[in-house]
Each structure stands twice: as C-alpha cells, then as structure tokens.
Design a protein around this nucleic acid. Structure first.
Length: 486
RNA sequence: GGCGACGUAGCCAAGUGGUAAGGCGAGGCUCUGCAAAAGCCUUAUUCGUCGGUUCGAGUCCGACCGUCGCCUCCA
C-alpha cells in the first residue's frame, strides 16, 4: 500500500510522492532555546522522529533539518527571554542558546530521537536573511518604514491559507507599541532596527537590528533544502501566525510552492491547557526521565495519532510504563528462550512451524504507519504480537529457534527501529553483563535452597533482590528476572 | 468575534456505512512451597440529544446541548 500523509495545507489525506525518488527533504521548526525542553517539545520531535524513521523503513534517505531559534523574538513591552535569561546567569545570549541547544540534544538523545541531519542555528544565518529581505523589497513584497521592514501581504490573496484565517493573520500580527506605520494590519515584521544595547543585533542596510520571527525558519529551510522541499513539520501551535508567514514569504521570494506536505503535530495538554513554559505547567524532559523510562514516554506520546492533542496525566504515563515494561519483559523472555533453544532443534524448518500468521504483523504495522503515521494503530499491532509471543512462550515449549528469531526480528524492526520503544538490550545498561552474572549467581544459590526446601533462605534472597530493584518470577522450568523501572 | 477539536463502559480510548477493538481498573480461574509474573475467562442490546439520508448510521447530513483549545511569544 502507498504511504499517505494528511497535508495540513490541503486538509486532505494525500498520497506521498517525494520530489526525489530516493531522498526526502524535511524541515522542522526548532524551539527557541532559552530554557530546557519539556514534554510538549518531546511530543513534536518524537512524532517527527517516527516520521523520519518510517520513511527510512520505506527505503528513503532522509535529510532532516531542524532550525533552532537563537536570535530572540521581537516582542515589545517584554524583554526577550534569551536576553533576560543570559543576564540572570551572567553570560551572553549566544552562550545561553548554546547551553540549551546542547541540553535539547541531550534530552532528545535520551528519548531515542535520532539527531537531525543538520541542526541549524538562526544566528548563523542572519546575513543570508538580510539578503533575503532585500530580495523581497526588490520584488515589491516588502517595504521599509522608519525603523522596520515589513512584509506586505496585499498581493497575496491566499495569505493565511494554512490556517484559513485571514483575520487570524491580522490579529496575530498586531504590533503592540511600534508598527503604526504598517500599511496593512496583517503585514509582519521582517527586520527591526534596535536602538537599545541588546546583544542580539546585527548589521544591515537598515542599521543594527534583528530579523523578524518568521524569516529565520524560511531562510534556514531554503539554505539546506532548496526553495521547495518535501515536508515541513512543526507544532500546531505555530500555525498561526508563524507557519502562515513562513509560507507566504517563501512563496513570494521563491515563486514556487514552499513545502509539499505540511505536518502539524497536536498539542500536549495539561488539564486541558497547552503545556507551555509561559504557563508554567510544564514538566521538563529531564524531570520526566526521573519518573518514567524513555520508552514509556515515547509510548505515551505515540499512543494517539500525532495530529491530535494528548492530555498529560500521571496515570496515563504509569499505564504507558506498565505496557512498555510488559513489552520489554516479553522480549527478554523471548531472547532467553532463544539462548536456551539449540539450533539443532530445527532452525531450518522453523519458518513453517505453527506461526504462519507472523508475516501479517509486519504488513499490518506498515499499513497502520502508511496511513498518516498512525502510531496508535501500529502500537496495537505490536501488542497483538506481544500477546501472541506470550502465548507461544508459555504454551509451545518446543517453539523452534527460527520461529523465535522471526518474532525477535519483528520486535527489533518495528518496535525498535521504527517506534523506538525497544532498546537494543532490554532492561540492561552499560554494566549489564556484570549485573546479569551477579543476579544469575544469586538465583542459583536460591535455587539450591528451593531444592533443599529451605523456603525462608530462598525468600530472603528474593526479597533482597526485590529491594535492590530486581523482580524475579519463577516459571515452570526456569526463573526469570527483570530490572524494575526506577 | 474568527478558526478548530471533541463528546463511545468506572477510567483512558480504537472504530475507514454492514451489525461496538484494545488497555487500565475490577472479579474469577490455571500455574505455584508462598509470591510475582504470565496465560485463560468475565466486565456496553449500545456510541451527548433530536431529526434526516439509507436495506442498514457510532460512522454521512442538519439542528441543538455540552466540554475544550487556539487567535501576543510558544513545539
């Protein structure tokens, strides 16, 4: 089946066709880097990560550009957060941005979000933005006033087509103190000169100043992906006015359509409200990782289609943690069984054994993902597989190595490579091998006690291990164990 | 005022016109020295309300009721 994507621009499900047969180019708006990232950011970037991973599964090479905003925002009346944050710490805004870009990368690494091909910083592209703005003036799409350059929306009847809100553009682009000399209320700032001593200003034909909020993304996308590219991603919250402005100015500048497909990720909400740094209702990724495993967080964020909003709730995260633990434990059991099953037990005939239905899982999974990256349904397929594997492990003690490896491969490819909710070594980290051997040694000791019917000694070992964070389960033929989620 | 989303069991929710997935919780069972885990079984005559289209509607259309988000910066 063909990959279909819901295009926020056409508001329709469209068959995906990239400009290039092999390469897919995508741009995703990055955060304004004045603080640590929170779970709301995680929702957007995990979603986009899964998009990129699924495209790779489908055989594409993906060029993924993420643009970080480190040039400050033009907002009168309030000091820029980069500037105020930097002053608080006694460093420059650029240093502050640097700190939080790396913090962002750390968090995303921890969540298993694969690095973008290119991480672009707006501040490195200011000269190019200046050229871009000059082009727009030459084209008659922008005009200078006393201390600003504005984009003129008048010639663009379809301005605001992404949000379908012309009035939204007007309201959103109201300038508070300045900008009375705008020709149209919906016009937006491309450049503003700065008299103040803010460190965030650059030279331009219009004097020292800063580029507008929207021009940075357009220029970064164009710099690395060309005038027109396949996918533009970002949070739904940026649609008005940011994405609308990006779209209209790019098409004005380049005379070609901007991105072919627009993917807008739904909000993460807390008690119904959008999670945001401003409202103070956010949970940083660093703090979330103290409570839940990275896979549980991904699972939670992917448990609804990316376009929809998700409510952050503790019990939902806890349920996600349980589900993911269940998955990991099943895979651990599976891998232990594989180790115990000798190849001589018929790996050659394995594929034809009791589980002829196994290939369906891959197909069902891909069908779900091909339908606008329906991760919710894809997770359902994974958990159907978990059940089937669980049944096989308990019921069919003679499952062949081939069958077991086929199952393991499905888990690796789908839950691991595409969804990123299955780490390479399940439940074991760096010193995993040593831990494993120590636990195995204790279990042997306990097993001796059990054979000798010395229940209290055996139970003492069990409860001590439990205290440390190792849960053990006696099976019909062996004892398995897992590290409990911390 | 403008744009939009959503109302399905105690809770979270999937449902692409063809006779209500799944998960959590709860209850029971199997296994078991006891646990735990796992597996099995049970848990909505019904999808906010009222109309309409249809052989057939949770699904399409209309109206109404209700909840919520966005519209300064924000993923």
């Amino acid at each position: 089946m063909a990959l279909r994507i819901y295009n926020a621009l056409s508001r329709k499900l469209e068959r995906f066709r990239s400009f290039d047969r092999e390469w897919v180019s995508m741009y995703v708006c990055g955060p304004t880097v004045y603080d640590h990232a929170h779970l709301g950011h995680a929702k957007t970037y995990v979603a986009m990560d899964v998009v990129a991973r699924h495209l790779r599964l489908r055989g594409y090479q993906v060029r993924y550009v993420c643009g970080f905003i480190d040039i400050g925002r033009i907002a009168d009346g309030e000091e820029d957060r980069l500037v105020s944050g930097a002053r608080r710490l006694g460093i420059t805004p650029t240093e502050l941005a640097d700190t939080y870009i790396w913090s962002f990368h750390d968090d995303m690494d921890a969540l298993g979000v694969l690095r973008p091909s290119i991480s672009a910083r707006a501040s490195c592209h200011v000269p190019r933005m200046v050229t871009w703005i000059e082009d727009l003036i030459d084209l008659g799409c922008a005009y200078e006033t006393g201390d600003s350059v504005y984009f003129s929306v008048d010639r663009f009847a379809d301005c605001g087509k992404l949000s379908q809100q012309v009035s939204g553009m007007q309201q959103a682009n109201v300038d508070l103190d300045r900008g009375q000399d705008k020709r149209n209320p919906a016009d937006f700032v491309l450049w503003r000169s700065e008299d103040s001593q803010t460190p965030l200003r650059w030279p331009s034909p219009w004097g020292l100043g800063a580029p507008g909020s929207h021009v940075a993304c357009s220029v970064m996308a164009n710099s690395y992906l060309g005038r027109t590219f396949d996918i533009h991603g970002g949070g739904l919250g940026d649609r008005v006015p940011h994405n609308d402005c990006e779209l209209v100015q790019s098409e004005a500048h380049n005379s070609v359509p901007s991105a072919k497909y627009w993917l807008l990720v739904g909000d993460l909400r807390v008690a119904g409200q959008r999670m945001s740094r401003r409202l103070g209702n956010h949970l940083t990724i660093k703090d979330a990782l103290k409570l839940y495993s990275p896979e549980a967080i991904r699972y939670f964020l992917l448990s609804r289609p990316y376009r929809e909003s998700v409510d952050f709730r503790r019990d939902a995260l806890q349920a996600a943690q349980r589900d993911v633990d269940h998955l990991h434990q099943t895979v651990r059991h599976l891998r232990r069984r594989m180790q115990e099953t000798l190849p001589s037990m018929g790996s050659g005939t394995a594929a034809f054994s009791s589980l002829a239905s196994l290939p369906d899982y891959r197909e069902d999974f891909c069908d779900a993902m091909d339908h606008d990256f329906d991760t919710a349904r894809a997770l359902g397929v994974i958990f159907d597989l978990v059940e089937e594997v669980g049944r096989t492990l308990t019921a069919d003690r003679k499952a062949s190595l081939g069958t077991l490896s086929t199952m393991d491969k499905l888990f690796r490819d789908l839950a691991g490579d595409v969804l990123g909710i299955l780490p390479e070594t399940v439940g074991l980290s760096g010193e995993g091998k040593l831990v494993e051997q120590l636990v195995e040694a204790l279990l042997e000791l306990r097993s001796d006690h059990i054979v000798a019917r010395q229940w209290s000694q055996a139970d003492a070992i069990r409860s001590k291990l439990d205290e440390i964070g190792v849960a053990i389960q006696d099976g019909p033929q062996d004892t398995s164990w897992r590290l409990k989620a911390s």
